Computed example of a mutant assay.
Amino acid sequence: MLFDYISAALVTLFVTLDPPALAPIFISLTQGMNAEERKRVSIRAALIAFCILAFFGLGGEVLLRLLGVGIPAFRISGGLLLFWIAFEMVFERRNERKQHTANVAITEDHIRNVAAFPLAIPLMAGPGAITAVILLAGRANGDPVYLSSLLILIALGVLSCFVVFQAAERVSRMLGVTGNIVLSRLLGVILAGLAVQFIINGVEALFKGSAL
């Protein structure tokens, strides 16, 4: 029984986290950073994402119920935030905010901000992953062994994202400046599609809930 739970949880978490899909987005978001700065971003993002998912795994359902906030609201708000990031990636609005400089200054605040948003949330610990963790925690029925297994699996999932981020740095060097610019525009369009899908899923879930 425990093996079935672990195998189902492992597949669910890796599908919702989708580490390979995060690699190109990580490259775009950390453009202009050196290897050490990218490593700090990936470590910080992984830690934040783990804490968020662990929190929702242990008490997220209760908190959401107390606040009267549903998962559809997470999907819609996360989609709107992602769409804004995608807009900036496509039209290079970040550079406009940085006084049209060719190279964006990489500050400590910038590293922390990118790690927290949008990497940790909503890209890693997004509505899909949060929903999956809450559902998996519900299946554990409060069993300490099952909940401990879930926390370990969350850690493994986040660790896989960290490993992918480290490999992404090598890919960025291979692409060069022009390649990174082209990739950033392309991924901005893809991210916009993902954001709209988040919003659609949230609206659909909202209407289904209202119909019940």
Rank of each mutant, 00 (worst) to 15 (best):
G59R: 13
H110V: 09
A137Q: 06
L67Q: 03
A46N: 08
D143M: 01
T107K: 03
P127K: 11
E88G: 15
G126T: 07
N113V: 09
G70W: 07
A129Q: 03
T107Y: 05
L47S: 14
Y146Q: 04
L80C: 09
A86N: 09
I85D: 04
A132Y: 08
G68F: 08
A86K: 06
S149K: 00
T178E: 12
T131C: 04
V171Q: 02
E96W: 14
H110Y: 15
L63V: 15
V163W: 07
L135V: 10
C51S: 14
K98W: 13
L147I: 11
A86S: 15
A168R: 02
N95P: 00
S42A: 15
E88R: 15
I106Y: 04
G78Q: 08
V69H: 11
A115S: 12
F50H: 03
P127T: 09
L47K: 12
A137P: 00
T107G: 05
L63T: 14
T107F: 06
L123C: 05
L123P: 02
F165Q: 05
V41A: 10
A46F: 06
G79V: 09
L175Y: 02
L58M: 13
V171F: 07
G79L: 09
A105R: 13
G176N: 08
I76K: 05
Q99S: 10
N95Q: 14
A155Y: 01
S172A: 15
D109F: 11
P144Q: 01
A168E: 01
G59D: 09
I134P: 00
F162D: 04
I130C: 06
A168M: 02
F87W: 15
T101N: 05
A137D: 08
P122D: 04
L119F: 04
N103V: 13
T131R: 13
I111D: 05
E61W: 06
E96N: 11
G79Y: 05
V104E: 14
L64T: 08
Y146T: 01
A125T: 12
E169L: 01
M174N: 03
V145W: 07
C161W: 00
L136Y: 00
L53C: 04
L67S: 10
H110R: 14
F55Y: 09
F74G: 09
G78N: 06
L175S: 07
E61R: 14
V41H: 03
R94Y: 13
F50W: 10
R75T: 05
A45C: 09
N141H: 11
L153S: 00
G78K: 07
I71T: 12
P144Y: 10
R170E: 00
G126R: 04
V177K: 12
V133A: 07
N95A: 13
F50D: 01
I154W: 01
F55T: 15
E92N: 15
R40E: 09
A45D: 07
V41P: 01
V163A: 13
E92Q: 14
F83G: 14
L159A: 15
I152K: 01
G78R: 04
V177L: 06
S42G: 10
R40F: 00
V164E: 11
P144N: 09
R94G: 12
R40L: 09
F55N: 03
M124E: 10
L58W: 11
G79M: 10
H110K: 10
F117E: 06
L63P: 00
L67H: 08
I134Y: 02
K98C: 07
A116W: 06
I43R: 14
G179S: 07
A102D: 05
I106D: 02
K39F: 03
A116C: 09
A49P: 06
